[in-house]
Amino acid sequence: MTNLQVDKDPRVIDVAIVGAGPAGMTAAMYASRAGLEVAMFERIAPGGQLAQTEHLENYPGYAQSTSGFELAMSMHEQASIFGAKLVGEEVLSVDFSVEPKRIDTAFGEYRARSVIVATGARPTRLGLPLEAELQGRGVSYCATCDGNFFRGVDVVVIGGGNTAAADALYLSRICNKVYVVHRRDQLKATAIYHKRLADIENIEFVWNSEVVKFLAEDGFLEAVRVRDKVSGEERDISCNACFVAIGTTPNTEFLAGALQLDQTGYIFADEQGRTAIPGVYAAGDVRQKELRQVVTAVADGANCAEAAAEYLHE
């Protein structure tokens, strides 16, 4: 990655994009291609959640499936070709009540005529004791990152959505046994996963149940305590790893009231990505929407870039 530092002096950026995942990178590509000066602010590196997706089999145009990391790098390259710059700084706070709008990072103050918030979401933590201490010691939020450490042993996946289903599928090829602990009596994941998972011998579903405790020995996960929500009974499932896939939490804390959020922290925005503040947009997983996928994130990014371009030409 080349961090092209934007001049920090009074220069004003046309479009500041917060977050360089699929939504942000697509917005950057569209806006820079429209001739606007674009800077993407990213706390870690471009790619977002996409970069840690093993492969995508439902991204249009890739019939043979594609690696999430490769697709993310290609999106970044494409945005760069049209002149979008990457600023490797985390946005800590914003002020949308001033013109041009203000963005503060740990390294300085930036001003932008329009802002696209595309900070995405992160895996939700269970909030159980020991969870943080055991991360990297058995508790994981990324099956494709950590699955290989658990070759031939028993693991638990918590959740019933698409991420949990994909994780269980991936882990079933590596691990001895995969328990899928879900609080309902069937998966919430897309239909295609139901049969696929049911057909795999080393996957066992633990329905109507939740993990209530992590049990550790010598600092490593040894088992999880599971409570059956119907009978109220508890039992321990011994496992070397537990993959938590219970949904995502939006990265909107930095906004601190600058934009209107729904009860779970997602940004309210219309179809074009417009928030209640003129010149401020929201794209991708961070906005309120029904379907959070790479394909909907990139569509959001394009819409927001167009809306921002229109706003700036007024």
Partner: peptide
């Protein structure tokens, strides 16, 4: 690991 996305993200 060579196959790990986040590893490749921080490699630079």
């Amino acid at each position: 690991a060579t196959w790990c996305g986040p590893c490749r993200m921080i490699a630079p």
